[in-house]
Design a protein around this nucleic acid. Structure first.
Lengths: 373, 373
DNA sequence: GCACTTTGGCAACAGCGTTGCGAAAGTAGG
DNA sequence: CCTACTTTCGCAACGCTGTTGCCAAAGTGC
């Protein structure tokens, strides 16, 4: 909350979001009122009131009972996934992916199309808007008012490469496409569609998607994406860390070789340049080692729990990259005399829809109490 | 708050802490009820109630009036600094510093002594406990119950070098002094003194001290300390970032030269090794450049506002280091096509008491709503 | 001196989670 | 099948929060 005062309305929505989040995490199995009370620290009676409200509003429902432990059996509650939906858009250099997900994050409908991100901004905007409207129309139906008529639609999340201003929804630039410099994507698309729009970097969306899916299994992790470039999404304490100017996660141009080879960004010895050069030479092991050095720096600096790897290059040989990065992390941890578990490294098992699904989570996260992360 | 439910008690203490924080930030100038209302988003009437409680408890007081703007002039409120005190202890390899500060963070009394951190843990503990008791006794007076009798004393914060577990208050190791491995400093000292004790790394304490003093002028900054070693304290969004295992801030052993010279930690190409080697060769400019590369990595990764430099080596030639780091940051920002202000670099103007004062803030921060940061 | 503006407290209020108690819905034993 | 017991969960009363409506206090400006 930062410097904001808390009033009773804030308490209500905070607790409601907390309960909704626990309901989601419980999945199909459901969760009882008493478990909710234990997890939140609230009294059972308060949980009953909160869940009663949620049931009235259609967000929660009863779903059977547990076995009795000698008395009245616990009633199990679950999230009603159809109570809310969000659209996730992944804009890549040559491809457009749109997904419609429900409150559970499950993909209800999707669409893929070729795209030329180098075309005029207005034209691209039109293609995106059309795709979104068609997808939502087919899956949920539209009222006379267009998307705003689809009652359960919370909004549209858009993820794309390149630096941008998340809080204002303005693109800084999209590498190689000067057309987009300074384009106010959020407001332009929001006006066109008539629903809330949120914009974020693709790596942040991916990290958010992983944090929700439970795949990360951690509240603090780094997602490193190695594809045509190298970027990172940081999740710290369950929230995507974007930094003061929402530009955090510039991992590719971390310098790890003083006065090393020139990178196209103008610096020398960037991880990205070294890593991609090794890949180009057909030495994935060396690429993994370089990536590992960067990852180890990050782990030491922020003390995170898990490192997740993803992207096309990693997907080609996941084992090599996971092992390579792991080796560097383990060696450094041992030298530092670390106690406890080593920091695990995994490759993301989610497919090519990860970024689009994460983009949709940009709108679902606030519902479940993850602030604006 | 994380996953904790909010009840009315939580709301009260949250809002009270918020108001106290604003009162502190206003300093001697004070702040009016209406300004407090604007800053917190609460209604003026709520602020009146909250400040009435704080005045009853002795934490706040009226302090004159502002000039009228056409009506009843605003009453100015201020913090009552004497309402609370905290002790800050800085344990260094050869020195012990103890300060007693009031709610404003102003040093009320202090003490300095030689210390051999290599001595037996129990012996060191005794020296520390005695120094704290004497200092507090002289300044505040002790009851029959020792420190616990000094009514306004919130507790003792201890800062020292080396990795440790902040949440449990256990030292991992103190470089060069195996005696301390695994020593439960917080509980041992807490039992001895009979008041709450909090333990943290010296760099974290320094960063906390800077964030409170307003010197940082930012809610997200990095404090880089270059002395006998090189370490960092990170403040993100107004809170000290400690990470999952409270080991964050390992800046000195960030690798910035792949397969570079061997560092005493066993890695190759650490910033610390490169930086200190340059200092040893009498090339502070090169040391600053190396430090700048590490700082630029950190700034890009986390997107922080300000970089603050400190420590004996920096204090020797502050201009050289500030300029050297600044040059690297500026050059990289320009290449990245950054817009807006460049990230400023400053050297800390606080003296040798910075760490001890920051250690005291470990206990004051919760009073002003900074969670446990 | 009068009209006006602004501040800030008093009292009534709505809404939050909490507490006390009882109904509902099971199990275990005769 | 009935009784005794345990556990779950909702209703009603409660205490406390910040909010709202109203009015007194304390200035300025004509």
């Amino acid at each position: 909350m930062g410097t904001a005062g808390a009033n009773l309305g804030a308490v209500r929505s905070h607790n409601a979001a907390l309960v909704l989040g626990l309901l989601r995490d419980a999945g199909a199995e459901g969760i009882s009122r008493l478990e909710l009370a234990e997890r939140t620290g609230l009294t059972p009676q308060a949980v009953s009131k909160i869940t009663a409200r949620l049931r009235e509003e259609g967000y929660a429902a009863e779903a059977g009972r547990r076995a009795s432990t000698g008395g009245k059996p616990r009633t199990v509650l679950r999230l009603v996934p159809e109570a809310g939906h969000a659209v996730g858009v992944h804009l890549d250099r040559d491809e457009l992916r749109v997904v419609l997900v429900d409150l559970d994050g499950a993909v209800v409908a999707q669409r893929r199309a070729e795209l030329d991100l180098g075309a005029r901004a207005e034209a691209v905007l039109g293609v995106v808007a059309e795709a979104v409207e068609e997808l939502v129309g087919e899956a949920l139906g539209l009222g006379d008012e267009g998307l705003a008529g689809a009652g359960t639609l919370l909004g549209v999340g858009v993820a794309l490469p390149g630096p941008l201003d998340h809080s204002r929804g303005v693109l800084h630039r999209v590498t190689g496409f000067p057309e987009w410099d300074g384009f106010p994507l959020r407001d332009a698309l929001g006006e066109r569609l008539g629903v809330p729009v949120v914009v974020d970097k693709d790596t942040n969306a991916a990290a958010l998607g992983l944090s929700v899916g439970g795949e990360a299994g951690s509240r603090s992790f780094a997602y490193l994406h190695l594809g045509t470039g190298l970027g990172a999404g940081l999740v710290i304490g369950g929230r995507v860390h974007r930094g003061a100017r929402t530009g955090a996660g510039e991992f590719g141009h971390q310098v790890i070789q003083l006065d090393g080879p020139l990178c196209e960004c103008g610096n020398r010895g960037c991880v990205e340049a070294l890593c991609l050069a090794a890949v180009g030479r057909g030495e994935p092991g060396e690429a993994a080692r370089v990536l590992g050095v960067g990852a180890a720096n990050l782990v030491a600096l922020l003390d995170i729990d898990v490192v997740l790897l993803g992207g096309r290059t990693v997907a080609g040989e996941p084992g090599v990259f996971v092992r390579g990065v792991e080796d560097v992390l383990d060696a450094r941890a041992r030298r530092a005399g670390a106690r406890g578990e080593p920091v695990p490294v995994r490759s993301s098992t989610r497919g090519e829809r990860l970024v689009a699904e994460g983009a949709a989570q940009l709108l679902l996260a606030p519902v479940f109490g993850r602030g604006d992360a």
